[in-house]
């Protein structure tokens, strides 16, 4: 459904993307995981037509996104990392203008449904600036859905939100998949990528360094992690294929130690020697 090949992008002297390639299948939740500054938002901006790449090819449903952006704009919606709601308009007016721009039929009914679905009906006449961060995020999600998009881009959708709102957004993402939408999610939260994504692409400094299902990626580095503090108080980690191997070394080193299942951050550390912050 989405094909990205050799994508490059430079901002001044900084090269944000160094030939990123991946493909996304219809109906899956694809996660772009990486630390801040890895290039995740740049990829999303290019795919959602607000940024032009310096090189490479990007196509959605076979349509070249750079050459014919107008052909795919009606199929996609996005929730950006930076809130781009119209602060001079009310919640209802935000949805109304967005719907008019996207030429949505039965717009008033669709806005009403979206307000009900995201529990915003009572705040429909409030200005965006009067809403909490979590509520603003719900307005962004409601706005993204009223055009009934085939593909949904969510750029760091839960950053800075409390755990309760985060869970609500996770439920929304799972529901979007059940509704048949393709979801592209960027995140630097390991547990978010682990819990939601069918496949994950790990980005580091503008390069895609690994790609696969969370399970496959974890298997590729080892399923068990032994953690122990060294003499200087630093956490040292060892990754093993089996739990027995981890215990064998742990017994040699002596207590205290922790053995746990590996996660995507372990994959990232193994591949880059850095942590995802």
């Amino acid at each position: 459904m989405i094909e990205v090949e050799g994508l490059t992008k430079t901002y001044g002297k900084i090269k944000a993307l160094h030939g990123v390639s991946f493909s996304i299948r219809s109906g899956e939740i694809y996660g772009l995981l990486g630390p801040n500054g890895a290039g995740k938002t740049t990829v999303v901006k290019i795919l959602t037509t607000i940024s032009k790449p310096d090189g490479g090819k990007v196509s959605i449903l076979g349509v070249d996104v750079v050459r014919m952006p107008e052909k795919i704009k009606g199929l996609i919606s996005s929730v950006p990392q930076e809130n781009n709601l119209d602060r001079e308009l009310s919640v209802y007016e935000n949805l109304l203008i967005y719907g008019m721009l996207h030429k949505i039929r039965n717009l008033k009914e669709r806005i009403y449904d979206a307000l009900v679905r995201f529990d915003l009906l009572e705040r429909k006449d409030s200005f965006v600036s009067e809403l909490s961060g979590g509520m603003q995020k719900r307005v962004l999600l409601a706005r993204a859905l009223i055009s009934d998009p085939k593909i949904l881009f969510l750029d760091e959708p839960t950053t800075g939100l409390d755990p309760q709102v985060r869970r609500q957004i996770w439920d929304f993402i799972r529901k979007a998949k059940l509704e048949g939408r393709t979801v592209i999610l960027t995140t630097h939260y390991i547990e978010e990528a682990d819990a939601l994504c069918d496949r994950v692409g790990i980005l580091c400094r503008g390069r895609l360094i690994a790609e696969g299902s969370p399970e496959d990626l974890k298997k590729s580095v080892g399923n068990f992690v032994l953690e122990k503090l060294d003499g200087d108080g630093r956490l040292v980690q060892h990754v093993f294929k089996t739990e027995e191997e981890a215990y064998a070394l742990a017994m040699n080193l002596g207590p205290p130690f922790t053995i746990r299942r590996s996660n995507l951050e372990d994959v990232f550390i193994k591949l880059t020697g850095e942590r995802i912050d």
């Binding site: 781009n84 709601l85 203008i97 721009l101």
Partner: peptide, 14 residues
């Protein structure tokens, strides 16, 4: 600042 312009650019209008 408000980034509202992104909404215009992403809309299927010329």
């Amino acid at each position: 600042y408000s980034k509202t312009f992104q909404i215009f650019i992403q809309s299927p209008i010329s």
